[in-house]
């Protein structure tokens, strides 16, 4: 495990070569997570790639002002979500919130097997269920379940208590569960 604080210190105080080396190590450590955060919010790989690169350019420019007592990924995560939202706004992309882009896709064509159609229906139900969550619960759910942030990191981003986040996460699951049950009852 790379010592993030040490790398950030090297970046701030080191020579040009050391700065670049420290930044590259920080980027290598976090790039996949950042990409997936962006990818789940954006519609295509190309958009996610552009935004991920922009995120790291922004990190490079602002790292000198970063407070070393804060968590690096929490800070980068916030930049990544903001950049993704900006990209959605500027390109007038559809805000997928990770999942809703697929809701608009056709459930399948006529040649698809029935199992596949059923699977697509279930996928869409779950996506709709997630989208139906209250904003706070949806944010916590996405951050904890998909982005695998710790409660402490989420608390730092959303400026709330860990206890409240656990309750939000739990209730998000319960609401998805209720949503799916209701759909099932309608189908029957």
């Amino acid at each position: 495990m790379v010592n993030e604080k040490e790398l950030i210190h090297q970046f701030k105080t080191g020579s040009a070569v050391n700065r670049e080396r420290a930044f590259k190590m920080l980027m290598d450590e976090n790039k996949e997570r950042v990409y997936w955060v962006c990818r789940r919010m954006l519609k295509s790989h190309e958009d996610a790639n552009d935004v991920t690169q922009n995120v790291f350019l922004k990190v490079y420019k602002s790292l000198d002002r970063f407070h070393e007592d804060a968590r690096f990924f929490t800070w980068v995560y916030r930049i990544a979500t903001n950049e993704s939202i900006n990209a959605i706004r500027s390109k007038k992309l559809r805000h997928t919130v990770g999942l809703d882009s697929l809701i608009q896709e056709p459930a399948g064509n006529e040649s698809q097997p029935i199992e596949s159609l059923k699977s697509d229906e279930t996928k869409n139900d779950i996506k709709e269920a997630i989208l139906s969550l209250p904003e706070k619960q949806r944010e916590v759910f996405m951050m904890r379940y998909y982005d695998e942030l710790s409660y402490e990191e989420i608390a730092a981003i959303l400026k709330t208590s860990v206890g409240g986040l656990k309750a939000n996460y739990f209730h998000a699951f319960k609401k998805i569960e209720a949503f799916l049950k209701q759909r099932l009852n309608h189908e029957v």
Partner: peptide, 26 residues
């Protein structure tokens, strides 16, 4: 669902994408 989605996203990733990403940013 999450696995299906991740698989679909992974399929569209160019080969060696993550190893080139740092070089592109630098």
């Amino acid at each position: 669902l999450s696995q299906l989605e991740t698989d679909a996203y992974m399929a569209e990733l160019p080969e060696g994408y993550f190893s080139d990403l740092s070089a592109n940013v630098l």
